[in-house]
């Protein structure tokens, strides 16, 4: 559906995107996840044709498009700022792409009506963007993109300007809409929770490079890189030595699945919910140094004895106290990370 091969872009001397290869399947919801300045928005703009890559190729439905101007690419982008035309009504904003493609008035009217119904904004067609709330503006931007029936929908942090509650609701709506329309979608965000909630697949980026990609479950439970492990969720990274699919660390031995990590110095990743503890019993001994209530669980930090190694653990709610001694149990298997 969409593929990128060896795509690179520099601004001045600064690397924005470096040798990115990426395949996106038809109907897939792919998220480009990474910290700000990692090149994810630049990559999105390269796909849209708004930024010209220095190197590399872009195919869209089998057609090589890297030299095609933006207005002929049939991609539709929703901008972080929404970029609604302030001098046009909602209806006119939504109609813009159709007018540019030369559709007749009746078709435009019908399609604009349908698009506004899709995002539940039928009553606001005559309003101007400044008369709308942030959430409504975001829906107009989405309707304006969807109405053009793009080959690929590009979303550049479209939810980041909304408050947490609205963002959560729109996340669910956006995913439902994308599934219903089976629309190939690339979503850019720095918010890992958003990436997990929305995506079929997450591609993690840092410093212009794509470090790894996988389903949200794979990225979370079996990250391959140190960066992905730390960027997505909370990670306890323990150094160790890999030999015969077993990693030996200061706190014990962990079985790892056969992965493409060479034997030698490695790190394993333990998620906070993989760690359990009880007031007494066998296992590693430690002392609680931090306890906070986090709703469905308690967020704790345990200092292991005698090593002083700190582990972050999410445990079922119980009146744990700072300073309490605990017996820590670690899982038998863990994800192993290369560099």
């Amino acid at each position: 559906m969409l593929s990128l091969s060896g795509v690179a872009k520099r601004f001045g001397g600064e690397v924005a995107v470096e040798d990115v290869d990426l395949e996106v399947a038809a109907g897939e919801f792919l998220t480009l996840l990474g910290p700000s300045g990692c090149g994810k928005s630049t990559l999105l703009r390269i796909i849209a044709g708004l930024t010209e890559p220095d190197r590399g190729r872009v195919w869209l439905e089998g057609e090589e498009v890297q030299d095609l101007p933006a207005h002929r690419r049939r991609t539709a982008m929703v901008f972080q700022s929404y970029a609604l035309f302030p001098h046009m009504t909602v209806a006119r904003n939504v109609a813009f792409g159709l007018i540019m493609r030369g559709l007749d008035r009746q078709q435009i009217q019908r399609k604009v009506g349908d698009a506004l119904a899709l995002v539940e904004l039928e009553g606001l067609a005559g309003r101007y963007p400044r008369e709308l709330s942030g959430g409504q503006q975001q829906r107009v931007a989405l309707a304006r993109a969807l109405v053009t029936e793009p080959k690929v929908l590009l979303l550049d942090e479209p939810l980041s300007n909304l408050d947490a509650k609205l963002r959560d609701r729109l996340r669910i709506e956006l995913r439902a809409l994308q599934r219903r329309l089976a629309l190939t979608t690339i979503f850019v965000t720095h918010d890992q929770a958003e990436a997990m909630a929305l995506s079929d697949r997450i591609a993690v980026m840092t410093k212009g490079r794509l470090v790894e990609s996988g389903t949200p479950e794979e990225i979370y439970s079996r990250p391959k890189s140190r960066f992905a492990a730390e960027f997505v969720g909370v990670a306890n990274l323990l150094p160790g030595e890999l030999r015969d699919e077993v990693v030996t660390t200061a706190v014990g031995r962990f079985a790892v699945s056969a992965q493409s990590v060479p034997a030698g110095e490695v790190a394993i990743c333990l998620r906070p919910e993989d760690i359990a503890f009880s007031a007494e019993g066998p296992g590693l001994q430690g002392r609680l140094t931090h306890v906070t209530f986090a709703g469905p669980f308690q967020d704790c930090i345990v200092a292991l004895e005698p090593s002083g190694l700190l582990l972050r653990a999410h445990v079922p709610v119980r009146p744990w106290h700072i300073g309490e001694r605990v017996a820590v149990r670690l899982p038998a298997r863990a994800a192993v990370l290369g560099e």
Binding site: L50, P69, H71, A76, F79, A83, L84, F85, G97, T148
Partner: peptide
Amino acid sequence: IPRDLIDAARNLGATAPS
């Protein structure tokens, strides 16, 4: 004029004169 507006117009199929 915000750059995003110009980019949005191009992305929606507008040629430079449009």
